[in-house]
Amino acid sequence: MTETTEAAAALGQEAIQPPARRGAGVLRFLRQQRLGTIGAVLIILMTIGAIAAPVLGTSDPEGFGVAPILEGPSGSHIFGTNREGRDVWSRVLYGGRVSLKIGLATVVVAALGGTALALLAGYLGGPVDFAFGRVADVLIAFPSILFALTLHASLRDELPNLGEVLAAEEFLLVVAICIVFTPVIFRIMRGNVLEQRAAIYVESARVIGASEVRIMWRHIFPNLVGLLLIVMSTTLPAAILTESALSFLGVGVQQGTPSWGADLSGTNRAYFVSAPWIAIFPGLALSITVLAFNLFGDALRDTLDPRLRGQR
């Protein structure tokens, strides 16, 4: 996260004044973007919670009868326990692992894929650009949840198992969410590639004899990095929300796997009125995480691209 902040802040400064020393940009970000800083701190806390889950007083989130059944929050189980006798605090921390893992995987793949396709479309132009654009139109025309549901129905029996890193169900989630977000990112980046292509510096590069590939890679791509960071920071919370919505609908993670969305669904729902803590904490964790990314993304956009201030 710090890397992103540094890169972001450094980029923001480039336009105004060169940073006096390393880290000055970060300090400026911290001073000027209070809400963004709160978001960044929350993101860091959530990430630590997810990574260090085993040592943060948790018990096996998938075992049965590890803790008493349906007990309210107390000293030994601060978020209470659920119907299967699992500690809700453990479920919430391990659920964060799933959300962050799938969110990050999706955003990286969709951002790289979308940008690569945008550069290709901008470079080749003509029929390729047209074809990519129409495919994107079609993919964007489906409400994302519907499309992910369809993909799930279509692909669920034919999945590679990537073992420990990514279970088959999680891989399917990544694929489904990627197909939903790649065309959106492609469309944004393509618009920018075309804008950059018309810029004077590209013309100058062409005049001095730079090849089109070199122009794309050395001149246009670096100018897209700031926008790409902004797009990634707004896509990540959306991806996390989509993952949890699909898990909520029962077409996400494997049954029993701790996930904020899945823990709010299915048979758990019958116990929400008598044991509200099992409904409140996973939802709260999810909402705070998405809010943190949105706050950070907003601040990042303010810093990197003042033209887009306040927009979303």
């Binding site: 949890s244 919505a245 909520f248 709010l264 939802g283 909402s287 998405v290 809010l291």
Partner: peptide, 8 residues
Amino acid sequence: GISVPNFW
């Protein structure tokens, strides 16, 4: 408002 999931 935009951060809170509708199913929650």
